[in-house]
Design a protein around this nucleic acid. Sequence first.
DNA 1: GCATTAAGTATAA
DNA 2: TTATACTTAATGC
Length: 234
Amino acid sequence: MIEKEKFLSRINLFQSLSEAELALLEPATPMEVVKRGTMISSPHLKQKRLYLIKAGKVRLYKLSADGKELTIDLLGTGHVFGEIGSFTISPTNMYAEAWEDSVICSIDKGQFEELMLEKPRLALHFIEIVSNRLQEVEEMMELMAYGSVRQRLVYLLGRLCEKYGGECQTDTPEWIELAVNLTHQELATMMGCIRETVTETLHELTVEGMVKKAGLRKPLWVHRERLKEAIGLM
DNA sequence: GCATTAAGTATAA
DNA sequence: TTATACTTAATGC
């Protein structure tokens, strides 16, 4: 129990709540362990909840008309997702699946709304998170519409770097390790292109010294400065 | 081993 | 760029 309260305080959304308030919230947020590949929420579920990722990673995706998956976002520990009433924290018709074995807490829509009424600070915080997410999606949409695969990949790597950039080695501080293992196929579903194109483009970026990889199924390393430079040119 | 998965390559549309 | 197909290497059972 205590452990879960601590976790709730780590969730970005609940930063503004006191310990006592978190204790109050605790019973309303059941915790669930989900295995990789498990569907957490789909558009067909009637019960709307807000989900909090305690551990692991969750992939949000939509299905295109011809059944292809388009990954919208990959969320890690501390992130929230879910549709809450008329305003959503992510686009509708969204599927959420556990991308790794994960631990998820959730709170009922109604309970969360009541909580926001009581705690204006929390509501403000929620708005901030939602609008940040919206901004990200808008930026990505623009690139998807007008950018080349190369531009999209560079941008995507930049975002992943900010989100999942791990510790860098002391001798090579400019190289950042991405703490997510993404296959070319997975990158492709995030960018809306095919795997082979990602393979080629990634090779291009490797030659230019923007990324490097030790081998198959090894993490990807990103040269932050060169990447930023490339983003700046877009 | 054998099947599966990820990645590299080639060629046509 | 994409679709399709074939090859290679690594991984798991």
